[in-house]
Amino acid sequence: MTIAPYVRHLGRGPGRSRSLTQDEAFDAMRLMLAGEAAPESIGALLMLMRMKGEIPEEIAGFAASARATLPQIPAPALDWPSYAAGRTRGLPFFLLSARLVAQGGYPVLLHGWNSAAHMNEIASIRGCLPHAGITAATSVEHAGELLDRHRIAYLPLESFQPGLLHLLRLREKFNLRSCVNTVLRVLNPARAPASVQGVFHPPYLELQADAGLLLGQENLTVIKGGGGEFERNPAKGVSLFGLRAGAPFTGTLPAILDEHGKLNQGWEDQTLLAQLWRGDWQDPFAEAVVTGTAELALATLGDATPGDTARRLWTERDTSMALD
């Protein structure tokens, strides 16, 4: 078997090339993950798609095919992908948002990978996990144990689908992102009923929402977030795309704070995450990032008053809780 026919569909030239169908994309990803596609063909397919632009059917087909290869992962309430490059972002306060949602009784599975070649060290997600009180799972089984015990876990991509990591890391050879970045955001490897996703480029808002619809996702919120992560800037209004009860959904929310401010305010000390959680450091902007992002996640989960709930959870958080 080969993916050459799919490369041909994409690359036949003006007036003759076309996008892949969802079934064709499913089969192409199956062949790539099974090691049955030549490296040259994989590179050609990914870069032709990069030039053409991705469509929801392709992303949904790739994601569904990748899901079919995955081990059984315990299903959380909320899926939270983290695959942004992070070249310009600041401290990942969204990690505290995820922990806050978990404290509210909703199991959260974070999953991701961030390239050291593109990620600035300050914003390193894995480097910040201990300061956010979140444990990185060493396996799918370990992730299940963490979800049972703490209602939150971070599952590295290499621990559940190393083949996708190989495809993702082709970025280091192309020096360009590929559709794999989008696939991983919509993957929802544990098939959680709700998912939150961030994008860096606005056109991907509708693309990921439409792919979620094709994948049968029930509840989904996609935002243009800090550095491409699901993280809200409280000083700006936010546009929402996604799904509610399996139907397309859009909305807007105003800024939380009446001020101008960037998410990256120059904070460089990763221990500020722990200090903010414990209450040893207080900053209204940072707190609003945490509670504002948690509000969007809680709304995705169906909370009727997500803003009030997020603020209550923040006030009542267990500042002494330490995860192993």
Rank of each mutant, 00 (worst) to 15 (best):
A117F: 10
H118V: 05
M119G: 13
M119N: 15
N120Q: 05
N120P: 01
E121D: 13
E121Y: 09
R126T: 01
R126P: 00
G127S: 07
G127P: 04
G127T: 03
C128V: 09
C128A: 12
P130G: 12
A132H: 12
A132R: 13
I134C: 10
A136M: 07
A136W: 02
A136Q: 06
T138H: 15
T138G: 15
V140S: 03
E141H: 03
E141I: 05
H142C: 10
A143W: 03
E145P: 06
E145N: 08
E145F: 04
D148G: 15
R149M: 02
H150T: 10
Y154C: 00
L157E: 08
F160T: 02
F160P: 01
Q161Y: 07
Q161V: 10
P162Y: 00
G163I: 06
R169S: 14
R171H: 13
E172H: 01
K173P: 02
F174E: 10
R177M: 06
R177E: 12
S178W: 06
N181V: 03
T182V: 11
L184G: 05
R185P: 06
V186T: 01
L187G: 14
L187C: 14
P189R: 10
A190N: 05
A190D: 09
R191G: 05
A192V: 06
A192C: 11
A192G: 09
V196M: 01
F200Q: 12
F200G: 13
L205N: 12
L205V: 09
E206T: 13
L207Y: 12
D210N: 13
A211W: 06
G212T: 00
L214G: 04
L214K: 05
L215H: 13
L215D: 12
G216M: 01
G216S: 05
N219D: 13
N219A: 11
G225P: 12
G226K: 10
G227V: 02
E231Q: 09
A235R: 01
A235Y: 01
A235L: 02
A235K: 04
K236T: 12
L240G: 08
L240R: 12
F241C: 00
G242S: 02
